[in-house]
Design a protein around this nucleic acid. Structure first.
Lengths: 225, 225
DNA sequence: CGTGAATTTGACTGACATCAACTCAGGTGG
DNA sequence: CCACCTGAGTTGATGTCAGTCAAATTCACG
């Protein structure tokens, strides 16, 4: 199941038609690219299994990770506009995606208003997500950024019916830092600090949120201290 | 003319049908809101005249401007997902918009594949724009951010066939700074510096780009110095 | 086990924020 | 006509958060 099929008011028949346009599955091993910058756009990809990151690099090598995608997320929405992918998508671990040819999807959107509506919700949601990252990068201090990151991850797991208090960070400290506009060292200092303050339990890349309320308050801007 | 009608391969008949769903015009005076946070979403708005800013505020009052919209831009795409507007949209000067009821638009998208395709391009373009702001906020230093901001404005004017070397900053220093994750003071120091370096001519809010190539190089990451 | 990568920790630095005083432009009313 | 007021913008002095650099430690994996 992925973002495109889940919470739409589709009939069984419609679901089947959606299934039919979902193309071949593709395995992407850890560290491999699903697509690269400037690759021509033909398809969206629904993550079935695993974890991805998307990132841009300017010509002087400065990298910015623009998102982490987990099972259920849709990759490639940013490529529709220009007809080429504006970023790299790389698997953080061995992963599996479904290809969804954009041309076929378009056909189906026309035939299925509920799906159209849903597709727009997904795209709009991506715009909202990026706006909140802008807010994070533009106005928050380091501890607040990191708290917001954890709260957001937790919420995404919860939305998928997975453990939301206890999960694994599938990305490295460096990748977290990059996403949050911070350095690996800053993340590395934040972790023991949050632990000391009783917010988290940390075992390497495994995290347990001990005080969700306080973490949320911190993320929401309860003056970082 | 706005983003939705311009570069689509629509027939004259199709153009007319698009025109017909475009609802009443609405004037928004300087400082007034086109819509507010949490207002229910019914329509998109095409800016016909003037200038807007959109911004989010967290509960502790930290504001982040997420975009500046000029004639031809589309407002409200971020509201489709949740059915409410996730930000405020405020006019920077006396402005005029066209209302486009989303329900009617949906009908038309189904009937006009070229328009559907185009609408997706516009949404996808918004995602790309926000990604480049993420890159800006996440990796660039102050002078590079400001240069990128000016280059981007210039490109938008050029795309509209307006003077791209010489234009007016319709937003205050404070608003520029906020958008770029900087303070008003930083912007205020950057301006004379760019002038000293022969990049700009500045007269209050009127700007002339004297050395577009060097400004672009700076924006692209030619080590800010 | 051993090797290289990831992470942690510490000392120092610097870019930008903060605070505060000042200037300037534009509008208003006496 | 000009004195005054207000908000926007500028400039300078100082502080601080997070970056940088470097070394130590732990982890992952063959």
């Amino acid at each position: 199941m992925h973002q495109l099929c889940l919470p739409t008011g589709l009939t069984a028949d419609e679901m089947e038609r959606l299934d039919r346009i979902i193309g071949r599955r593709r395995t992407v091993l850890r560290g491999e690219a699903l697509y690269r910058l400037d690759a021509p756009f033909h398809s969206l990809y629904a993550v079935r299994l695993g974890y991805f990151k998307t990132y841009q690099a300017d010509r002087h090598g400065a990298v910015q990770i623009t998102g982490f995608q987990m099972a259920g997320d849709l990759l490639g929405l940013d490529a529709i506009g220009a007809g080429r992918h504006p970023c790299d998508a790389v698997a953080l671990e061995d992963s599996e995606v479904c290809e969804i040819a954009y041309a076929s999807l378009q056909q189906l959107l026309i035939a299925m208003p509920a799906l159209l509506r849903h597709f727009h919700r997904v795209m709009s949601g991506e715009i909202m997500r990026e706006q909140s990252v802008m807010q994070l990068l533009g106005t928050m201090q380091a501890p607040q950024r990191f708290a917001a990151f954890l709260v957001n991850l937790s919420a995404r797991y919860e939305a998928r019916g997975m453990a939301s208090q206890q999960f694994r960070l599938h990305m490295s400290r460096e990748e977290i830092g990059n996403y949050l506009g911070l350095t690996i060292e800053s993340i590395s200092r934040l972790l023991p600090r949050f632990k000391r303050e009783g917010l988290l339990r940390i075992d390497n890349r495994d995290i347990e949120i001990l005080d969700p309320a306080r973490l949320k308050a911190l993320a929401a801007g309860a003056i970082a201290r």
